[in-house]
């Protein structure tokens, strides 16, 4: 009697424990300001909506480290979902580190902008970011409207440019190529390189640290380039010192993709999170929070006018189409040109 009741209560306990015990999804993405905002806008609301799923955010400073971690854990993955740069995701896909991802995983895939779906990558766009011009409002009193402002001789020694191999430098090369009247970036970058050689004497540093936003906010540099989302967040925190402008000639996208790690332990819970992250409402919410343009076409309608104006979502047509996988094939050549011809002119 006694024994049976004990066994029964143990079983009940085990059952309730099983029901209450949350499944865990490990999400890996950028640490720092991205983590701060993504937790607030996506991760925490998700856990409220899905009390049975626990999301653990594992932040890393850059995509390279994420790739390195995936490689190291290939035989026993610890990460379920990863957000990283599209070109690094390509390498990860090639090495079999990402599980296939299509409409069967989440229906939202069908609603994504075409730029968010890249052939040969087992991950889809989750944020769009674009290169913008940054300026210190004390030094640059009139908001510039054109990329040409970087070339203005009055900013000699005051321009801050993250140089290649950083992809901000690569994007600038593509923009400069267009400014100089060049054809598509795959048809030769010479006009762009020549244009940047004229910019070189203006440059204060090719390696702004800790990032490009701080020195411009503080006035160490007057003008420069950076990514829109971070620039908008820092601009809000800068007491009006940091100005951000999307120049009239348009810009280029940087794409972060989200993917499922191959053989990851979480299984369906991970897919649930992915579905949530790509949904129009959540996409819109993250745009409101951190000014990344949404990748879901249905999201734009849900974003406030004020926030929309501070992203590229309203000007998708003005973006220079960049296929980062193609760019990767010419990246070494571009880097070489920068190092041998552009940077030496700025000593």
């Amino acid at each position: 009697m006694k024994n049976r009741s004990l066994a029964a209560s143990a079983a009940v306990l085990a059952l309730t424990a099983g029901a209450v015990q949350a499944e865990t999804v490990v999400l890996s993405a950028y640490s720092g300001i991205f983590e701060e905002n993504y937790r607030a806008a996506v991760v925490e609301p998700f856990m409220e909506a899905h009390p049975d799923i626990d999301v653990e955010f594992y932040g890393m400073p850059n995509s390279a480290q994420m790739l390195g971690t995936l490689r190291a854990q290939k035989s026993a993955p610890q990460i379920d979902v990863m957000i990283l740069d599209v070109s690094v995701a390509k390498a990860a896909t090639d090495e079999g580190l990402f599980a296939p991802l299509d409409e069967s995983v989440t229906a939202h895939v069908a609603d994504l902008y075409p730029q968010a779906r890249v052939e040969g990558v087992n991950a889809v766009g989750v944020t769009f970011d674009n290169l913008v011009m940054l300026y210190n409002t004390d030094k640059v009193t009139e908001a510039p409207t054109s990329w040409e402002a970087l070339w203005d001789p009055q900013w000699k020694g005051q321009v801050s440019i993250p140089a290649v191999p950083d992809i901000q430098g690569t994007t600038l090369t593509i923009i400069a190529n267009r400014l100089a009247g060049g054809e598509g970036y795959m048809d030769g970058m010479e006009p762009g390189i020549a244009k940047l050689m004229e910019l070189a004497p203006n440059v204060q540093t090719w390696e702004p640290r800790p990032d490009v936003y701080q020195p411009i906010s503080s006035g160490t540099a007057a003008i420069g380039i950076g990514w829109n989302a971070r620039a908008q967040v820092y601009a809000d925190k800068s007491d009006g010192k940091l100005g951000v402008v999307l120049p009239e000639e348009g810009s280029g996208f940087q794409i972060n993709v989200i993917g499922l790690v191959q053989d990851a332990p979480a299984g369906d819970a991970a897919k649930t999170f992915l579905d949530y992250a790509l949904s129009p409402e959540v996409q819109a919410r993250f745009t409101e929070t951190m000014f990344y343009a949404p990748t879901n076409q249905k999201a734009a309608a849900l974003v406030s006018e004020a926030a929309l104006e501070r992203t590229a979502a309203g000007s998708m047509d003005e973006m220079i189409p960049i296929n980062w996988l193609e760019v990767a094939t010419i990246r070494d050549a571009v880097t070489e040109q920068w190092r041998r011809r552009i940077i030496p002119l700025s000593r």
Binding site: L67, S87, V88, K90, A91, D94, E95, L325, A328, R331
Partner: peptide
Amino acid sequence: FNLARYSFNRATVGGGI
């Protein structure tokens, strides 16, 4: 040893090995 081994591998476009 791993480092030495990598130095004789080929890098592919986009960061693959």
